[in-house]
């Protein structure tokens, strides 16, 4: 019985997650994100890492549906946008403190996702993907018409909003640290799901849903839970992101590009892996930074995302991590 287990199935004992090296790798990533800009008060680095925390949060959560359960969610940005709207609205119209507004946004969006999920997750495969495109379009159209949320013009927060956090300069740091926390929670969530029975069920669904159901995986429930679970942290990230901007409008909140980028990131890093979503986000962010500063490429961002996605799907469907595991099979045990 030499076959050491790989992938989703870990050691025989009920080992706690903390005893495995990957737990500490995630902790180190979080610490690096928090400390790197704080040392020396580097605001420029902070702003660039802030975008990375959003990418990692979106990609990690998308990975739960796209990577584990094998369901394409073209509208994952809806969670981010609705979270942002709920949070900004509660603060601006009802004067809620940030923490309460954030929590309400996360809970409300997850609940909405559960309701959506129970409905549309009865649809299989391609039909589900179509419905998620529709959700994005419909929610954006709805919000653009929804007067309490400012319609197409959006919502503003007054600058006094940063006072409770110690003024604008300090507030930006607070929001950044909170986003790092949300990113860390996303990585741990992604890891915990993957190491659990729930995650095994999702991965079985992703491999062959009919077979999984016959084996006893309660697919409709699991899919709806996964969909709802993957909504919570992006909603928090959306709340923080738009709180920081002090402004939200439909075209920013439901920017389909961000949904697309999250998908490119997951595929680039390697779907169904925790590390892949993080490394993919980092690589993509670097690439994007280069493209945006390059005169020739800045207007071709969509073209390049698309071409990159196509090349990955055609030639490296396992992404970066799939490529690494192919050459170094034991890598699965260290980098989940």
């Amino acid at each position: 019985m030499s076959g050491k287990t790989t992938g989703t199935v870990a050691g025989e004992q009920r080992a706690s997650l903390r005893r495995r090296p990957f737990f500490w790798i995630i902790a180190a990533v979080i610490a690096a994100f928090a400390l790197a800009p704080a040392i020396g008060n580097n605001v420029e680095l902070r702003e660039s890492l802030l975008l990375a925390t959003v990418y990692i949060t979106l990609a990690s959560n998308l990975n739960i549906m796209l990577g584990y359960a094998g369901y394409i969610n073209f509208g994952s940005i809806v969670f981010f946008g609705l979270g942002g709207y709920t949070c900004v609205y509660l603060i601006s119209a009802h004067g809620w403190p940030l923490a309460a507004a954030e929590l309400a946004a996360g809970v409300a969006v997850s609940f909405l996702a559960l309701v959506f999920g129970l409905g549309i997750l009865r649809l299989r495969g391609a039909f589900f993907a179509l419905a998620t495109i529709g959700i994005n379009e419909a929610v954006q159209a709805f919000v653009s018409n929804f007067e309490p949320w400012g319609g197409a013009a959006g919502l503003y927060l007054p600058t006094t909003i940063f006072k409770p956090l110690g003024g604008p300069m300090r507030a930006l740091w607070v929001v950044y640290f909170l986003l790092v926390a949300v990113m860390g929670a996303s990585l741990y969530l992604s890891y915990a799901v993957k190491s659990s029975k729930f995650g095994l069920g999702l991965i079985a669904i992703g491999q062959n849903e009919d077979a999984a159901v016959v084996l006893g995986v309660p697919a409709p429930l699991y899919k709806a839970l996964a969909y709802s679970l993957s909504a919570f942290l992006p909603a928090l990230a959306g709340g923080l992101y738009f709180f920081k901007s002090a402004f939200i409008q439909p075209s920013d909140a439901f920017d389909l590009n961000l949904s697309t980028e999250a998908m490119v990131i997951v595929m680039l890093g390697g779907r169904s892996t925790v590390t892949g979503a993080a490394i993919g986000a980092y690589l993509y962010e670097e690439l994007r930074g280069y493209l945006l500063t390059s005169q020739t490429f800045s207007s071709f961002q969509l073209v390049i995302s698309g071409a990159l996605l196509l090349l990955i799907v055609l030639f490296v469907p396992g992404g970066l991590m799939g490529w690494i595991y192919g050459r170094w099979p034991r890598g699965k045990e260290v980098l989940e």
Partner: peptide, 28 residues
């Protein structure tokens, strides 16, 4: 063509990617 017989997810992604390229070129 290359993706026939692979999980349907892959063709959704590949046609979506081509869509992005076309729309991106159009926007440019």
């Amino acid at each position: 063509h290359r993706l026939m017989g692979r999980p349907p997810l892959m063709i959704l992604l590949s046609t979506f990617a081509v869509n992005l390229v076309v729309i991106g070129l159009g926007t440019a």
